[in-house]
Design a protein around this nucleic acid. Structure first.
Lengths: 249, 249
DNA sequence: AAAATTATTGCAGTTTTTTGCATGGAAATT
DNA sequence: AATTTCCATGCAAAAAACTGCAATAATTTT
């Protein structure tokens, strides 16, 4: 790994998480802490970050800019993303949908992970794109302005031709009786095909959406292999899903 | 292996992987590291890549940390974009490639314009996406990491099925004798098909690239209908192109 | 086609950059 | 106050970059 690459990664991480730890960076990039310290030194001289004991902070962090923007949900989504990441192994072929949870997942992908991601979600693709070891396949078709994902027969047909190891879906509603439900017709078409084209379906959602219902049916609960929320898997609210045979993380 | 070939290969590798290592290139092409270093030196002088200790990185790599990068060129590109926009009429079907000039064009699209844009360039799509009246068709395929555009047989085949009113190409080199030339094999394939699939081809470039040459041939000058630069159309340097029958704006 | 010119390449020696390690001291934690 | 963790400095080894130079290859001129 080149020095500049390393420093770019550090800046990326700082901007993403507002802080970095020297020892984390050191083990992630497999260089000594001295090297990290020297990198932080240089970057701080260039104003890219603020060096503190044990790591560094984002320069824009000191100004109290927390725009009261659903910090809780973001935190939850980050927890979900962390759990989801642990399922992805080197060399896997992964199909992902759109939505903020998936974008958070994209941001949390470890540096060394080598995998192929297939998606029609533009914001997710933008994140995958900046990862050094991820191959990205873009699903083309007409772009839906609201969901920022490509929808239509072309995308559908393309998904049909592949068989992915994993499929990550950010879901809008899940419910034991009705399974996964959603509110966008076009997006539902895609999700159904994505489920059919993957060996394992992993659903990501914040706990808030558990046991809720939306107008359009996506699939039965039996099609879901894994469910990830920010809660402890032993949590009471998740028990019915565990009992239904779903792996809950 | 010729110097030209070697350098084209290096550029290709940089565009594909975001980085190259001197010793890897050296052993891959069986030349000394000195030669590689001299190649990187030249390419870096031409802005094709950024030389760092141990190899080189894609130029788009540190565009992130210097936002006021190349302000002059940005100004030029904005002028070009303004001229280009004037060619687009309501209801048109427009095919666009990638590159910073095209992105600038995307940002300049007037609010009321209603048209359909087809592109495989992620940054361009991100811009189109935020426009209220533009329909966007995404060309899917494998994403090239630093040209940030989808390339491959799928994208090629898809373009082949359409016939656009206009095609906007940001070009890397134009020259009366050799026409349009470029340095990335995959991108060239797409550009050729885009030209073939459009009624009018409009080339955008900053004056700097006029009368220059790149290793790979895209098309003859006769295929170009319109050429847009930041210069006055009556400018001396553009005269040969006007004489060749090209509409120069 | 031959000769002259120019460009390109590899090599040897030197210099610079980068990195990891050791030491002693500073800062935080308990 | 003791202990652990983190930081600064100097140092040495390795890798990479630069320099000048000679040999070779490519291009142009005659």
């Amino acid at each position: 790994m080149l020095k500049r690459e390393r420093q770019a990664y550090i800046v990326h991480q700082v901007n993403l998480h507002n802080k970095v730890l020297s020892n984390t960076l050191s083990s992630e990039m497999e260089v000594s802490e001295d090297t990290i310290r020297r990198d932080l030194q240089e970057l701080s001289e260039n104003g890219k970050l603020i060096k503190v004991h044990g790591g560094a902070l984002s320069p824009s962090f000191n100004k109290i800019d927390s725009p009261h923007y659903d910090v809780y949900a973001l935190k939850s989504k980050r927890i979900i993303a962390k759990k989801a990441v642990s399922l992805i192994k080197d060399g896997m072929f992964v199909l992902t949908g759109g939505g903020t949870t998936i974008i958070e997942l994209a941001r949390c992908l470890p540096l060394h992970l080598q995998a192929t991601f297939v998606s029609g979600s533009i914001p997710a693709i933008v994140e995958y794109m900046s990862h050094p070891n991820i191959d990205v396949i873009v699903l083309g078709d007409k772009l839906s302005k609201v969901s920022k994902i490509t929808v239509g027969a072309d995308a559908h047909a393309r998904i049909k031709t592949i068989k992915a190891d994993l499929c990550f879906l950010g879901i809008n509603a899940i419910n034991l009786k009705h399974g996964i439900t959603d509110n966008d017709w076009d997006v539902v078409q895609l999700k159904q095909q994505m489920i059919a084209s993957s060996q394992r379906t992993v659903c990501l959602t914040i706990a808030e959406k558990i046991n809720s219902l939306q107008p359009i049916h996506v699939c039965d609960i039996s099609k879901v292999h894994t469910l990830i929320t920010e809660l402890d898997p032993a949590s009471e609210i998740l028990k019915p899903y565990v009992d239904a045979g779903i792996t809950v993380l």
